Simulated scan of single mutants.
Amino acid sequence: MLYGAMKVSVGAGLKVVFRPRVEGREHVPARGPAILASNHLSFSDSFFLPAVLDRKVTFIAKAEYFTSPGVKGRLTAAFFRGVGQLPVDRSGARGAGEAAVRSGLEVLERGELFGIYPEGTRSPDGRLYRGRPGGLARVALASGAPVIPVAMIGTDEVQPPGKLVPKVLRPGIRFGEPLDFARYRGMEGDRFILRSVTDQVMYAIMRLSGQEYVDVYATVAKRQLAEEARARKRKSAQE
């Protein structure tokens, strides 16, 4: 009930104000389980993507969004639950991965849509980074659900990283043809299969988005950029 109310209020507001361009919506099934695997440019991706679909889309989110104290914390938790996000404790990499897989399978077993960002975090510079096989591929192979590649376009311009107030620009959302990995079902313990499945999905996303692909993890790129920024700051202070 809360999701329905939030869907109407938030979703309708986003469509009226930002008028997102949508392509390939017919590739999302009207019923039954499916995985929406998307690139990740902005915090707003998890709001724009569900807003353009009639069905509920469930993402996973940091547990901190649901456990912060005080009135603000309770309101934040209610908001994220209302827009269909599930809390996952990311304090341990392995535990977080297992929790994400369990959450995804539970969503799909209910016949719903599960949204996931294979890069694992937002792109630091608008490029597409290597997908992490631990979540997407394992959920796809264990469930047998089709994977629908999704390209978010321009959402990083609507809401750049670190900016709270978005700019009123028109983002784009492109849905690709479903990818069927049923031939690999039951092989989610094979790391080579997981890597192959993930790479196929990332290639489909790259074709849809037109992004430059970088064959490293986004988390590694973020660390490198942070180190370079610190080095420039030290150099500037010495001059």
Rank of each mutant, 00 (worst) to 15 (best):
R174W: 02
D180N: 15
F175S: 07
R170S: 14
T198S: 05
V165G: 06
D190I: 06
I205M: 03
S209I: 10
P178V: 03
G189N: 00
F192Y: 13
G210S: 09
D190A: 08
T198V: 04
R174G: 01
R195L: 12
P166K: 12
D199S: 13
D180M: 08
Y213N: 12
E177T: 10
L194F: 12
E177N: 08
A204N: 07
T198N: 05
R183L: 05
I205C: 03
R183I: 03
G186P: 01
G172W: 04
T198M: 02
A182P: 09
E188F: 06
R174A: 05
T198E: 02
E188H: 09
E212T: 13
P178N: 00
L194M: 10
Y184T: 05
G172M: 05
D180G: 11
R207F: 09
I173K: 03
F192K: 15
L208S: 00
V168N: 02
I193S: 07
P171V: 04
D190F: 06
V168S: 01
V165I: 15
L179S: 05
K167A: 14
R170G: 10
V168I: 14
D199M: 12
Y184I: 03
Q200A: 13
K167T: 08
E177K: 14
V165P: 06
P178D: 01
V201L: 02
E177P: 11
Q200H: 12
L179E: 04
E188W: 00
L169S: 12
K167I: 03
P171D: 00
M202V: 07
M187L: 15
V165D: 03
R191L: 12
M187D: 05
F175R: 08
M187F: 06
L169W: 11
M202H: 07
M187V: 03
I173H: 02
R170C: 11
G172N: 07
Y213T: 10
E177H: 11
V165H: 05
V201F: 01
M202R: 08
K167E: 07
A204M: 08
F192S: 15
A204G: 11
R174H: 04
P166G: 15
I173W: 00
R183D: 06
S196A: 15
G189R: 00
D199H: 13
